[in-house]
């Protein structure tokens, strides 16, 4: 009987083990997307609501960091494992490919997951530098403290998305993220073995639904700011 540690190692080394890691971390990232979007939509409730929400999050540093570390683990687990899978898959195809290539039913989204993923990764790095680490801007300065002495997230959002290139990159990245989800969401259920003949059409529809909700919800913010509907 192999030891528990060697079983875990051989599980991760196996094809299905790695696929399961990608699926579970993927669902973790989708859960984060919903939480993050719900928080950001508070921008429509006005400066007080979103600033107090941000202050509330920062009032629990232990919990916030636990969530951040969990998110980071999902993020890197998803990316590193995917890269390993892609490497194996390219090797499995062999040196000589087909001279005549054809696809019967694989969706375009499913065939470009690595590319949509790489662009989303670039976006996430930019997004973190932009709003979380505030590199190259003054969002951490005294002018971003509201009347109640809290970090003025509302003003930061409005100023951040008032710059057209930032909004444009955000919208393009969201489009790619949803393109990624249109294949990825249902794929998670397939990989976890949670599909049946009757539930499969519903799971696929839910995947498109999740992608659409994330896209519309998130993109509405830069669009509203650019249009001047959200301002200070």
């Amino acid at each position: 009987m192999p030891s528990a540690a060697s079983s875990i190692v051989s599980f991760y080394r196996s094809s299905i083990g790695k696929k399961l890691v990608v699926a579970i971390t993927g669902l973790g990232l989708v859960a984060f997307l919903f939480g993050h979007m719900a928080g950001n939509l508070k921008v429509y409730a006005g400066p007080d609501k979103i600033n107090s929400y941000a202050a509330w999050l920062h009032s629990m540093p232990a919990l916030l960091w636990a969530a951040r570390l969990g998110l980071l683990a999902c993020f890197f687990g998803h990316i590193v494992t995917t890269v390993l899978l892609v490497k194996q898959n390219r090797a499995a195809r062999g040196e000589v490919g087909y001279a005549y290539n054809a696809t019967v039913q694989a969706s375009r989204a499913s065939r470009t997951m690595i590319w949509s993923g790489i662009i989303i990764l670039c976006f996430v790095i930019y997004h973190l530098m932009h709003y979380t680490m505030c590199i190259g801007n003054e969002y951490e300065s005294a002018s971003y403290i509201d009347a109640a002495g809290r970090h003025d997230v509302y003003k930061m959002l409005v100023d951040g998305f008032s710059w057209f290139p930032a909004s444009a990159f955000y919208i393009v990245s969201m489009a790619l993220l949803c393109w990624h989800l249109s294949h990825g969401f249902a794929s998670c259920f397939q990989t976890l073995g949670l599909r049946g003949e009757r539930s499969w059409p519903l799971i696929k529809a839910a995947g498109y639904g999740v992608a659409a909700v994330i896209f519309i919800g998130n993109c509405s913010i830069p669009i509203s700011i650019m249009a001047g509907w959200v301002s200070y």
């Binding site: 399961l20 194996q88 696809t103 694989a106 997951m113 794929s187 976890l192 949670l194 599909r195």
Partner: peptide, 28 residues
């Protein structure tokens, strides 16, 4: 062999119409 990325080209070409639902069962 490589790893399934859930594109289902396999079930589309299978002469015996084996469904990819079995792959989900295998994963589980």
């Amino acid at each position: 062999f490589g790893n399934c990325t859930n594109q289902y080209e396999c079930e589309a070409v299978c002469p015996k119409e084996i469904t990819a639902e079995f792959i989900a069962d295998l994963n589980r």
